[in-house]
């Protein structure tokens, strides 16, 4: 008797399973057809790092202080900066990131005292490694600024005429020696 009831209830459970799957069959699919469609990436997504810039002036926040490079446990950051003509502080001129080494640990972002770097939203980076192994973040910054219709900040430009007058303390606008 036990076998009979077991068989019967087992059979009913099979029918239930079939009913559930056929319901799925006729419901719309939820696939995003990836290369043709993409989902919006969450703001918090940790892509490789990128330079932030001042929304108004279009100038990068980075002062080439090298703190991030020192904070990085994987030594992926190599950067350089100059003191532009007629400016008080330094500005980054090259910011190289070896992304193959980066562990996306975010220590550089946390270490930066000037809030100058952030994680980007780029996720589809599949390519031959040496195409993105060394990222030039300054170039990326320039591209991004150009894309929003601003002119990227050029640290090598001669100081504007008004600038020395406003800041007499600034000495001769000679590029500083590389640190």
């Amino acid at each position: 008797m036990n076998l009979v009831t077991e068989t019967f209830s087992g059979f009913l459970s099979l029918i239930t399973g079939l009913r559930i799957t056929i319901k799925q069959f006729f419901s719309p699919t939820i696939t995003t057809h990836y290369p043709h469609q993409t989902l919006p990436i969450a703001k918090k997504f940790r892509g490789h790092i990128e330079l932030k810039w001042n929304e108004e002036t279009g100038k990068p926040n980075c002062t080439a202080c090298n703190i991030c490079a020192k904070a990085c446990p994987s030594d992926c950051i190599v950067l350089d900066g100059i003191k532009p003509a007629g400016e008080k502080g330094k500005t980054v001129t090259s910011y190289k990131l070896d992304y193959t080494l980066c562990s996306l640990c975010s220590l550089c972002v946390e270490a930066c005292p000037f809030d100058a770097i952030q994680h980007s939203n780029r996720y589809n980076l599949a390519s031959v490694p040496n195409q993105w192994a060394n990222m030039d973040l300054v170039q990326r910054y320039k591209d991004q600024v150009t894309r929003v219709g601003k002119t990227p900040y050029d640290p090598y430009a001669p100081a504007p005429a008004a600038a020395p007058a406003a800041e007499p303390a600034a000495p001769a606008p000679a590029p500083t020696a590389q640190p």
Binding site: T21, Q24, F25, S27, P28, T29, I30, T31, H33
Partner: peptide, 13 residues
């Protein structure tokens, strides 16, 4: 295709 639809995927496209 069936396998896809039963799992709410489109199958080969």
């Amino acid at each position: 295709k069936g396998a896809g639809r039963f799992q709410r995927r489109p199958g080969p496209t």
